[in-house]
Computed example of a mutant assay.
Amino acid sequence: MATASATSTLRAGLPDRYLTPEDIAEIFDVPVETVYQWRKKRTGPPGFRIGKHLRYDPADVRCYVGERKAADRAA
């Protein structure tokens, strides 16, 4: 079974589950370390902790992408 590319995954819709930092890194084609830096600097999609695990709500990720696209259009 072929896996979808990160770009097609984002365009087709995100999975109906909370996303891991590895998922975010794959979707945006960045290293996982970048995802953690975004969180530290509060510049990336908002995440939350479940115990010691970091997760991302797909709705928040969609909103983040929409905000970034709008900011780029306005620039």
Rank of each mutant, 00 (worst) to 15 (best):
M1Q: 12
M1E: 13
T3M: 15
T3L: 15
A4E: 12
S5K: 14
A6E: 01
T7H: 12
S8P: 04
T9R: 14
T9S: 10
T9C: 08
T9L: 12
T9N: 04
T9I: 11
L10R: 04
R11A: 13
A12L: 15
L14P: 05
L14V: 07
P15M: 07
R17S: 07
L19W: 07
T20L: 09
T20E: 03
P21R: 04
P21V: 11
E22K: 14
E22Q: 14
D23R: 05
D23C: 10
E26N: 10
I27T: 01
I27R: 05
F28G: 08
D29L: 10
D29V: 10
D29W: 10
V30E: 02
V30Y: 00
P31R: 14
P31H: 15
T34Y: 07
V35K: 01
V35F: 02
V35M: 05
Q37L: 05
Q37E: 06
W38P: 01
W38T: 04
W38A: 01
K41C: 00
K41N: 09
K41E: 04
K41W: 00
T43H: 08
T43V: 01
T43M: 03
P46R: 06
F48L: 06
I50F: 10
G51C: 10
K52Y: 13
K52P: 01
L54P: 00
L54T: 10
Y56P: 04
D57W: 06
D57Y: 02
D57S: 11
D57H: 14
P58M: 02
P58W: 12
A59F: 00
A59P: 02
A59R: 13
R62T: 07
R62G: 03
R62Q: 11
C63W: 10
C63Q: 11
Y64S: 01
G66D: 08
R68F: 07
K69V: 13
A70P: 02
A70Y: 09
A70S: 12
A71F: 08
D72F: 11
R73V: 09
A74S: 15
A74F: 11
A75N: 13
A75I: 08
